[in-house]
């Protein structure tokens, strides 16, 4: 849901507050210009601004990601400080990520978050899938995704900050509890729970999993992947989770017949993943295919109480809740037709 509006949670940032950290962003500090909230991101605020360095007059394009209203954090989120630390580690491992310039300190008075360099390219999925700028790169993207994911999954886990560990059993327990807590009965979700129970597999040694690797969270340039963003759901677990999530039906953005992000065939993704050192386990991918569809369906369905109790009374929230049925038909297709 990249377009989700969180204006009700939006607390404006003063240029002066940003000016206070200018010295941490560029040697000698500078003048903050053109601060604006970027659209998108229900669980984090993203702001863009420019910093004109006092020393040499050069303009630095920067991005601030912070907790909504400065402090809110979702229960499954790793936390912004951890996210920043992971991004720095990924940069050192050669994964394309934006450069972290500063992690907010409570004394900065800006809440929790971090500032990165701006990266040129496109995040909006429909543009990546349709605009002429990306015509040449599109066929190469599934393989590039495989390559980058193998790099993330192959990262050494020693020395990383403490991360949530998500095995199949824990995922299943969480999903089951969430399905049972929904405000309306959903037989198809129960079929999915049952299928996941019957097909659960032994855990594998946990690796670093991005947790939300899909168009919308990637900056795509006309020659490839410019940056992997949105590390807020990063955790340790089964690498096949990322492969399945990238292929989930909602993340095909209308190009449903192209399983990998609406761009191409699973074979291209898998072959590149293996060429880059990963190992694809089809049975596990399939388990995560079903878990992914159920995950997204539960997320949608759980919007109803938030809409009703006034937490977010927007029309958009109601309409997201009504998308739960999309996940139900996806689950039927996955479970009954093996697609």
């Amino acid at each position: 849901m990249t377009s989700t509006s969180t204006d009700n949670l939006c607390i404006p940032i003063e240029d002066s507050a940003l000016a206070r950290i200018a010295g941490a962003l560029v040697a000698g500090g500078g003048e903050v210009r053109n601060l604006r909230r970027l659209s998108g991101g229900a669980s984090q605020e993203t702001w863009a601004f420019e910093l004109v360095a006092a020393a040499d007059g050069l303009t630095h394009r920067l991005i601030l990601r912070r907790a909504p209203g400065g402090t809110f954090q979702h229960s499954t989120a790793a936390g912004l400080e951890i996210e920043a630390a992971i991004i720095r580690t990924m940069a050192a491992n050669g994964i394309p990520v934006p450069e972290v310039r500063h992690v907010l300190d409570p004394d900065d008075g800006l809440g929790r978050g971090f500032v990165t360099s701006h990266v040129d390219g496109e995040t909006i999925a429909r543009r990546v899938l349709r605009d002429a700028t990306f015509t040449a790169v599109r066929p190469a993207l599934p393989a590039l995704f495989g390559q980058v994911l193998a790099g993330i999954h192959g990262s050494p886990t020693a020395g990383l900050p403490e991360l949530r560990l998500t095995c199949l059993g824990a995922t299943l327990d969480l999903l089951r509890n969430e399905v049972r807590a929904l405000s309306t009965p959903r037989p198809v979700f129960e079929v999915a729970i049952r299928w996941l129970e019957d097909h659960v597999l032994p855990d594998v040694p946990p690796v670093l999993v991005h947790g939300d690797f899909r168009l919308g969270n990637l900056i795509i340039a006309d020659d490839g992947i410019a940056a992997v963003l949105d590390w807020e759901l990063v955790h340790l677990g089964d690498p096949m989770e990322d492969l399945a999530w990238l292929c989930a039906t909602p993340w095909r953005f209308g190009n449903v017949d192209q399983p990998v992000a609406g761009l191409g065939a699973r074979e291209d993704l898998f072959a590149a993943y293996e060429a880059a050192g990963g190992t694809v386990d089809r049975a596990r991918v399939r388990w995560w295919d079903v878990a992914s569809a159920l995950r997204w369906g539960v997320n949608c369905a759980a919007m109803t109480p938030l809409f009703r109790d006034g937490t977010d009374p927007s029309v958009e929230r109601a309409m997201i809740a009504r998308r739960a049925s999309e996940n139900e038909i996806d689950l039927l297709r996955l479970i009954y037709l093996g697609d």
Partner: peptide, 17 residues
């Protein structure tokens, strides 16, 4: 399918299913 006919009759996942 009846839900989809109301919620999102043009949903690509419905067509594929």
């Amino acid at each position: 399918e009846a839900k989809l006919e109301v919620d999102q009759p043009t949903y690509g996942g419905l067509t594929r299913a």
